Structures are given as structure tokens and as C-alpha cells.
Amino acid sequence: MSTVDETPIGRAFASRPGAGILKALLVRSALDRLAALFLVLSVLAVAAYGLLRPDYNWDMVAYVATALENRFEDPRELHAATWQLIDEGASEKQQYHLKFSNPYNLNQWEQPDDFQSQLSMYRVKAAYIGLMRLLEPVTGLIDASILLSVVPSFLVGMLCLYWLWRAEALQGAFFLVPLLLVADYSRMTAAVAPDMLLALVSMAALYAFWRGRDVVGCLCLFVSVFVRPDNLILIFALLIAAILFNGRKLPIAVTFVAAFAACMAISKFGGHPGWWAHFYFSCVEMQNSMAGFSPDFSVLLMIKGYVRGVVVALQANDWPAILAALTAAWALLAKFGRIGGRRANGLVFALAIGTLGKFASFPLPDDRFYFVFIAGMAVVLIASWRPRFDLVPANRGL
């Protein structure tokens, strides 16, 4: 008798009723349903938490202000209208954090002109701001900003479920859900930012590519740069993969050129300060005012920004470790012939180099900036692997 059989759980399953229950559970249809239910309940729990306990972060304030910006000429009026909306929904603790938790926040609370100068870095998320304004008559700007995280989060979960179902890999949900949670899925849902909306559009594009619907995938990718222009990196990574893995090059090449032109136009008309000024602000030193901010380029300061990004990413974030684990999983699946075909391999390759490229272009350490790449890589690998718990030999115990 094994040590497992000597435990209360082992003895229970060794009994006739327990063995019957175990046999019923270890059937593919039952395990598939359990995995699907696990994924659905997890997604609903995350969405419910994001809806009931939204994170009133600084980005939320800036995005609400950007959505209001087209109706106020005076920075003081914009400042007052923004904070009135924020104060109506935020708790006292959240209000204190947003206004007084650090010198930067305090300055933005006290100086309306400085506050408006920050919005040049938020206007470039044109589709996100446009959707906030579109929903405003029905929900108000605050609830619109919350729904634009919660609803895409739910739809991302449902897309993952559908993807695993089409791949006959539903039992992979037992692996996917914990991985998504570690990759910041729950926190991104509660935070008010365009990241979940970007994840939805990008995951739809990746699924389309996985299914061989390249034109649909390219259209989704083109739309994605209006949510976050830096998703151009994913498009470029997919273009490289198409070249190396002999995929369809013309659609993705045209998409990259069109997306690049769109990014340039968005940056120009949005008044974006430029890559170096934004890099300096985010990776070297935050600035109370971005009005006319144009620092001289410095290799030493750029290196400082990258060192900071690497250190914080390794110490306080999970995406580097997940990327390493997924890359190892890709190698193992390839070794045992479980991930065949240039399309799946090309997608995994693109997502792997895209993660590194995203960091190289702008070394922000937070998990949310890499969620699209990590989640996409995980689903493609699990869909190729198609794990089956019902195939585990019964004599190996529980």
C-alpha cells in the first residue's frame, strides 16, 4: 500500500463509493466541464472584484481629465471638474493617496497648469479616450472608465475559454488561470487603464492568426495601436516571425506600415512630448510639469533607466520569471513533438521576442505592460500541449 492510501483521503477514494466517484471524475468530459467551470468562475470573480472594488489610481485621474479636456480651455476649470468626479467615487483613503501620498501627486493636486501638462502622455490612447466619451452619456466618465477594464477582462477570459475549447484543450484551464493571475490579470481588471482593452483586441488578433485568419488579425492589430500606440511592437514582432517562419508577409507588412503612420499621427496631434522626454519622465525622474520639457539626450541617463527597469522587474514583478518558464515549456513541447507547425511556433516566437522588445523600447517594469505577450504565449502553448488529466494511470495514485 502506498503512503497515499494510508491518508484519510486515500482511504476514502480506495473505498467502493470513493472509487466510483473518482472514476466518474476522471472522465474527459467531466474534467473538461470542471476546467471550463473553473475558468468561468475565476473570470467572474475577477470581474466582480474589479467592478465592486475599482482601483482609483493616478492614471484614472489623468484619463478622466483627458476625456474632459475638450470642453475646458482653462486648466483650473478642467482640474476642478476632474477632481469633483474623482472625489464623488473615491473613498477618503483613496482621495488621500491620490492627492497627498507623494510630492508628485501633491503638486498635481495643487497646480492645475502642471496637471494639464501631464495629459500629453495620455491623449495618445485615442480609442480608449473616445470610448470613455462615447459611454459617458449612459454611465458617466467614472463608471465608463471602470467598465472599460472590467468588460474587456471578462471578454478576454471568455476568449481564452473559446480558444481552449476549439483547440480541444479545456483541461489546460487548470494551468492557465493561475498563470494569468500571477501575470497581473486581477490587478489589471481593478485598475483603470487601457491595458485590459488592449489585451482583448490583441488576444483577438492572436486567435485570428492561430486560426489562419490573417486579415482579421491584422485589422485587430491596426485597431490596437489606437488603444496603446506601443502595441506597434507586437506588430513588428509578428512581422519578424512571418519572415523567419515563412508566414504570410504582405498583410502584416502592410499593417505595420499603416500602424506606424497612425502612431506618428497620433503622437503629433496628441502633442506627445516624444520618446526621450517620456522615457526620462517614466524611467529616470518624474517631472511636475511636462510643458516644454525637452531634456538633452544622455546615454548615462538612458543606461540608468534600463538598470532601474531591470532591477525593479526582477525584484518586484513576475513577467521575467514567467517568460523564462514559458520559453522552457516551449522547448520541452518542441522536444517531444507537442508543438508542431510554423504557425504556432511563429506566434510563440513573436510573443517571446515581443516581450523583450517591449522592455527594450521602454523599460517599464510593471507586469501589466507585458500581459498581452505573456497571456498570448501561455494560451498558444497550452492549446498546442492539450494536457489530459484523464490519461493519468490510475495506479499512480492521487
Score class of each variant (00 low, 15 high):
Met1Asp: 14
Ser2Phe: 07
Glu6Lys: 15
Thr7Tyr: 06
Ala12Trp: 14
Ile21Met: 14
Ala36Asp: 12
Leu41Tyr: 07
Ala47Lys: 03
Ala65Asp: 01
Arg71Ser: 15
Arg76Thr: 15
His79Glu: 02
Ile86Tyr: 03
Ile86Cys: 04
Ala90Asp: 04
His97Thr: 15
Lys99Ala: 09
Ser101Leu: 08
Tyr104Glu: 05
Asn105Asp: 02
Pro112Asp: 10
Asp113Cys: 12
Asp114Ala: 10
Gln116Glu: 14
Ser117Ala: 06
Leu119Cys: 05
Ser120Asn: 11
Met121Arg: 11
Val124Pro: 12
Tyr128Ser: 04
Ile129Arg: 12
Leu131Gln: 08
Pro137Ser: 11
Pro152Ile: 00
Gly157Pro: 05
Tyr162Glu: 15
Gly172Ile: 06
Ala173Met: 08
Val177His: 04
Leu181Trp: 09
Thr189Met: 07
Ala191Trp: 03
Pro194Thr: 03
Asp195Ser: 06
Ala199Tyr: 02
Arg213Gly: 12
Asp214Gln: 15
Leu219Pro: 06
Cys220Ile: 12
Ser224Ile: 11
Ser224Thr: 10
Phe226Tyr: 06
Phe226Cys: 01
Asp230Lys: 10
Asp230Glu: 13
Asn231Ile: 14
Phe236Trp: 08
Leu239Pro: 06
Leu239Asn: 03
Ala242Asp: 02
Pro251Tyr: 00
Ile252Met: 04
Val254Met: 11
Phe256His: 03
Ala258Ser: 05
Ala262Arg: 00
Met264Cys: 13
Met264Ser: 10
Gly270Asp: 05
Trp276Tyr: 11
Trp276Pro: 06
Tyr280Lys: 09
Tyr280Ser: 12
Val284Tyr: 04
Met290Tyr: 00
Phe293Gln: 00
Ser294Cys: 10
Met302Gln: 08
Val312Thr: 10
Val312Leu: 07
Asn317Phe: 14
Ile322Thr: 09
Thr327Gly: 12
Thr327Leu: 10
Lys335Ser: 13
Phe336Pro: 14
Gly337Phe: 05
Gly340Asp: 08
Gly341Met: 04
Arg342Gly: 14
Arg343Thr: 13
Val348Ala: 08
Pro363Met: 03
Leu364Thr: 11
Asp367Pro: 03
Arg368Gly: 00
Phe373Pro: 00
Ala375Trp: 07
Ala378Tyr: 07
Val379Glu: 07
Ala383Ile: 03
Trp385Gln: 00
Asp390Trp: 03
